[in-house]
Design a protein around this nucleic acid. Structure first.
Lengths: 207, 207
DNA sequence: GACAACATACCAACCGGTTGGTACCTAGCG
DNA sequence: CGCTAGGTACCAACCGGTTGGTATGTTGTC
């Protein structure tokens, strides 16, 4: 009956706070989300909050890292790695991204893109964590992009730059979706991006 | 010597507040910019603020409209309308946009893109004003885009959709520039967009 | 003397953060 | 084995400062 595992029992106070942050910050922004809001949403007290995080800024950094972890796990097991052809994997990635843009705006938008807008000048630590999340994800696309460009003899395009460009299109689509309160404009931008990749590689856009 | 024009004399308290908002909101975000901050930056008292604006939210709406006015005046007199060829005008527009992406992040980023991220769910009035600013600017590009597509016999592309896509690329570039604290990534995304337009129209990218 | 354009002083609510304390688990010791 | 020392996890109450907003007063102009 001895239980040597982590002493916690229900779901982890820290994780509950991080989950609450992921939701609330995307709804209201970082600075409009108060520590009290977070605690209430997570069902914990403020004492517990400051036991786990030295400051609200520290929670911001932790939330960005948590976001990087959960999204990279999501994309690692996503079905877009299946195609044998690298270009088809790139197309499949963009299809997955477009398919994820559904429902309420706060549900499909990017936590770190939202946070970095607000705090890029006031919190270097959060800014760096958000940058690491975005850039780290973009880098996972580079092998497929590089292989696709090479296979189609495309020259003069930097795979890293194109990977960052895909993230720019997604982040910009999120902003437009927020402005219009409608996901459609963001999905449409992914279609234009897919079209660009197709033209670049000299193939017709699939589907 | 009788002056029947607006009774103001120096530079306009309202305009000073709006200018301060344009600067501070891009630096710190909307909710982190307090009414006191705005007043101090504009050199006016809080009584003056609430004389001109019913609430902080009302200032947000006014700032979005002010932004729409000043940027549309800027782009109306920009040199990209000169070329006789519509496609060249589109390229020139993108060159102008890229050329504007210089200096500190808060200086070239978009006020309404920043604001709408934060308040899209909490302030419908500000959200609508930001949408009007972005969409209104995008619509000014439609005639040139439509003419360019027609001149090059491109079918299946909606000029309105492509115009919105250009704004998505710009807004996304701004976010990446904030994350990296470097304008270069935003300029680069404009280059990819220009490349897309060139491929679409079957021409080589100029310069 | 009516009215717009401010200024000054103030307010209740809320902010991030701190305090002192409690409950519980584990390690070590005799 | 019992006991205690120390650490982790958490809580309720509180703190000084800041928040958006207001009430009231003053000034200059038609």
């Amino acid at each position: 009956m001895s239980n040597k595992l982590p002493p916690v029992q229900p779901a982890g106070t820290k994780a509950k706070l991080l989950d609450a942050a992921t939701r609330l910050v995307r709804e209201k922004g970082f600075s409009s989300t108060s520590v009290d809001d977070l605690c209430k949403a997570a069902g914990v007290t403020k004492g517990a909050f400051f036991h786990h995080f030295a400051s609200k800024e520290a929670l911001g950094v932790a939330a960005a890292n948590y976001w990087a972890d959960t999204t990279s796990a999501l994309f690692a097991q996503a079905p877009y790695h299946a195609p044998g052809n690298p270009l088809d994997r790139v197309f499949a990635y963009l299809d997955v991204r477009a398919a994820l843009i559904v429902g309420g705006v706060a549900e499909f938008t990017c936590l770190v893109g939202t946070m970095v807008q607000e705090v890029h000048e006031t919190s270097p630590a959060i800014r760096a964590a958000c940058d690491a999340s975005i850039t780290g994800h973009a880098e996972t696309l580079v092998p497929d992009i590089a292989a696709a460009l090479k296979a189609h003899a495309v020259v003069g395009i930097d795979p890293h730059g194109l990977a960052m460009h895909t993230q720019a299109v997604l982040q910009g689509g999120f902003i437009l979706a927020k402005a219009k309160n409608d996901p459609e404009v963001a999905r449409q931008s992914v279609v234009y991006l897919k079209h660009y990749v197709a033209l670049l590689c000299g193939v017709s856009v699939p589907e």
